[in-house]
Design a protein around this nucleic acid. Structure first.
Length: 509
RNA sequence: GAUUCCGUAGCUCAGCUGGUAGAGCAUCUGCCUUUUAAGCAGAGGGCCCUGGGUUCGAGUCCCAGCGGGAUCACCA
C-alpha cells in the first residue's frame, strides 16, 4: 500500500511524524471555537461598522501560502468565505523559540491543513482585508495534496488556472468539489432552501409531516420498475418504494386533514442527466380539496421558491428566461395537442389515434392503449416546447389509475401536471376515492400488463380496503425535488444537485 | 441500450506520418527578510487506464475490456 503513495503523500506523512516528534498532536481533541465567520469580517469591516475586530478567533483550512523570510501571506477558508492571513515570525513567536514559525509553519504545514488562529484585522498596502496572526495552531494535518484552483487577473480578465472540472472526479470526490469550487456549495444551499420553503408552505396549510415505509411488500403509486430486496426473518421479498402515494392516502383515510412527506424514491431504470436511481420527491395530500385548488397552491409555492432562492420570480435557465410569477397558462391535454399539432383528437378512438401518431412519426405498438398513445403525442410534440411554467390538465383515464373521473368530461380524469423548461416538475390530481372504480382501474392495469406493457400497477388489496372505509374527497400532488432544484440553480444535470449521484463502481485501473 | 469523443506527473493539459516522456501550477532546495508573488534559480516526481496484437521498436496504429463525458432512446 505504502508503495502506491506519491512523493507528495509520503512527504506529508513524514511531516506528520515530525510534528508528533515536536510534541504536538497533529489531530488534537479540544474544541476550537471561532468567534466570527470570514463572511462577517469581510462584510462588517469593509463597511467600517463598529465591532470587535481584535481578538479574532477563526478555524478553517489553509488554502494557499506565500512564504517570505520572516513574514508570509496565506489564505484561510471557512464555511463562509476565504480571507488572507499575514503571518509574521515574531508575532506568533514572541520569545526566543522560533520553532512554530521556522519549522512548523514553514516546513511542516501544507495547503489543505486545518488550522486555528487568533489575531486582529488590518488592511494591507494594496487594500486587502487581512488577519494579522498572533497565535497559530494545527487542528488537523492533511495527507493528500488538494487540487489547487487559482484565479489570476490579466488586465481586466479573470483567468482560472487548473480548474477542478472533470465530472467524474467532482462527483466521486464531492468533498474536494465542495472545497475547491465555491459555486457547488451555493447549489446545495439552494437545494435546502427549496425544501424549507415547501415544508413551511405545507405546514402553514395545516399539514402534518409524516414518514411512511421505504420497504414495501407491494410497490404501487406509480408506473416504474422497482429494486427488490429480501427480509431474512420474514423470508420474503420487499421492494424499495417507487412512490409513497398509497400510504399517504391511507393516512387521509385515518383522519388527518393534510399530510406530506419528503421521500427518497427508487426506480430501477436508466440513468441520465435527468435520472438518478434514487431521487427525492415531496408528496402532499389535502382532504376536502380538489385539483383546481391545488393548481393555485402550486403556482404560489413555486413562485415563492423562485423568489427565495434567486431573489426574483424571473430566472435565467439555460438559454431561456423563465417567469414563475403566477398565474400560469393552463391548457387541457387536448387543447395543448391541438395547439402544437393542429389536430383535434378529443373525439378519436384507438385506431384513429394510432394513425395520427404514425402520421406524426411517433412509434406505436400493440401494447399501447389509447392513453399511452395520447401521452406519447404529448411528450413528443408538446412537452419540449413548453418553456414557461404551464399547467396541463384533464388527462386520459388509462394513464392515471389513481385519479378521479372528471366531473363533466367522460374518459378523462381530474389530473394536472406542471411543465417547465420542457420537463414535468409536478403531477397532481383529485384523488380517486370510489373503491369500486379503483378496483376496476387496478384490474384494467393488469389487462394492460398482459398486453405487454411492463409498467403497470399492482393490485393493492389493503389500499382498496382502506378506501372502502371511506376517504374524503382529496387533492394530492407530487413534486420532483431534484428537477425543481435543477431549475432553480440553472443546473444542466441531476448529478449537479445530488451530493453523491450514483455511478459505476470505481475501478483500480 | 445506441452513436461519438476522452483516459499521459498531485492538478490542468501538450505530445505531429510510430524512434529514449513534455509544459505551467503544486512539491522539495536555495535566493528574497517585514504588508503581496502566479517572484527568481535549480531539483525531484510517470505501470502514458487494463489486457492482447502488429512492428526491430507503441503514449501514438489495431482488437477487446474498464471508467468517464456528450447526444439519442425509456422512466420523474
Amino acid at each position: 500500500m505504502i508503495n502506491n503513495l506519491s512523493e507528495q503523500e509520503l512527504l506529508r506523512r513524514k511531516k506528520k511524524e515530525q510534528i508528533e516528534e515536536l510534541g504536538t498532536n497533529p489531530y488534537p481533541s479540544e474544541s476550537f471555537e471561532s468567534n466570527i465567520t470570514i463572511k462577517e469580517i469581510l462584510q462588517k469591516f469593509d463597511k467600517k461598522e463598529a465591532g470587535n475586530f481584535k481578538d479574532i478567533k477563526l478555524a478553517g483550512r489553509l488554502m494557499s501560502r506565500r512564504i517570505m523570510g520572516s513574514a508570509s501571506f496565506a489564505e484561510i477558508m471557512d464555511d463562509s468565505d476565504r480571507i488572507q492571513l499575514y503571518i509574521h515570525r515574531d508575532s506568533i513567536c514572541p520569545n526566543e523559540d522560533k520553532t512554530l514559525y521556522n519549522t512548523v509553519f514553514k516546513k511542516l504545514m501544507d495547503i489543505g491543513d486545518i488550522i486555528g488562529i487568533k489575531g486582529y484585522i488590518f488592511v494591507t498596502k494594496v487594500g486587502e482585508t487581512s488577519i494579522h496572526v498572533q497565535e497559530l495552531k494545527l487542528l488537523s494535518k492533511s495527507l493528500k495534496p488538494l487540487p489547487i484552483v487559482k484565479e489570476a487577473k490579466e488586465g481586466d480578465e479573470k483567468k482560472v488556472y487548473d480548474a477542478f472540472t472533470d465530472p467524474e472526479h467532482r462527483y466521486r470526490q464531492r468533498y474536494i468539489d465542495l472545497l475547491v469550487n465555491p459555486y457547488v456549495k451555493q447549489i446545495f444551499k439552494k437545494r435546502t432552501k427549496v425544501i424549507k420553503v415547501l415544508r413551511d408552505y405545507f405546514d402553514d396549510l395545516g399539514c402534518l409531516e409524516v414518514e411512511t415505509p421505504t420497504l414495501q411488500p407491494i410497490y404501487g403509486g406509480a408506473l416504474a420498475r422497482p429494486f427488490t430486496t429480501f427480509h431474512n426473518t420474514l423470508d420474503m421479498d420487499f421492494y424499495l418504494r417507487i412512490s409513497n402515494e398509497l400510504y399517504l392516502k391511507r393516512l387521509i383515510v385515518g383522519g388527518f386533514k393534510g399530510v406530506y412527506e419528503f421521500a427518497k424514491l427508487f426506480r430501477n431504470e436508466g440513468m441520465s442527466r435527468f435520472h438518478n436511481p434514487e431521487f427525492t420527491s415531496v408528496e402532499a395530500y389535502f382532504a376536502y380539496k380538489d385539483y383546481f385548488w391545488l393548481m393555485d397552491q402550486v403556482e404560489s409555492v413555486i413562485e415563492e421558491i423562485a423568489i427565495q432562492t434567486n431573489g426574483t420570480s424571473k430566472i435565467q435557465i439555460g438559454d431561456n428566461k423563465i417567469e414563475f410569477k403566477k398565474p400560469w397558462k393552463r391548457y387541457t391535454m387536448f387543447e395543448v395537442i391541438q395547439k402544437f399539432t393542429d389536430i383535434d383528437i378529443s373525439e378519436m378512438n384507438e385506431t384513429e389515434l394510432k394513425k395520427v401518431a404514425k402520421d406524426l412519426k411517433i412509434k406505436v405498438d400493440d401494447s399501447m392503449g389509447k392513453g399511452k398513445i395520447i401521452d406519447e403525442i404529448f411528450g413528443e410534440k408538446c412537452e419540449p416546447k413548453l418553456i414557461q411554467p404551464t399547467i396541463i390538465m384533464d388527462y386520459p383515464i388509462e394513464m392515471s389509475p389513481l385519479a378521479k373521473n372528471h366531473r363533466s368530461k367522460p374518459g378523462l380524469v381530474e389530473r394536472f401536471e406542471v411543465i417547465c423548461n420542457g420537463k414535468e416538475i409536478c403531477n397532481a390530481y383529485s384523488e380517486l376515492n370510489d373503491p369500486i372504480e379503483q378496483r376496476k382501474r387496478f384490474e384494467n392495469q393488469l389487462e394492460l400488463g398482459k398486453r405487454g406493457d411492463d409498467e403497470t400497477m399492482a393490485l393493492d388489496e389493503d389500499y382498496l380496503r382502506a378506501l372502502e372505509y371511506g376517504m374524503p374527497p382529496t387533492a394530492g400532488i407530487g413534486i420532483g425535488i431534484d428537477r425543481l432544484v435543477m431549475l432553480m440553480t440553472n443546473a444542466s444535470s441531476i448529478q449537479e444537485v445530488i451530493f453523491f449521484p450514483h455511478m459505476k463502481p470505481e475501478n483500480q485501473n
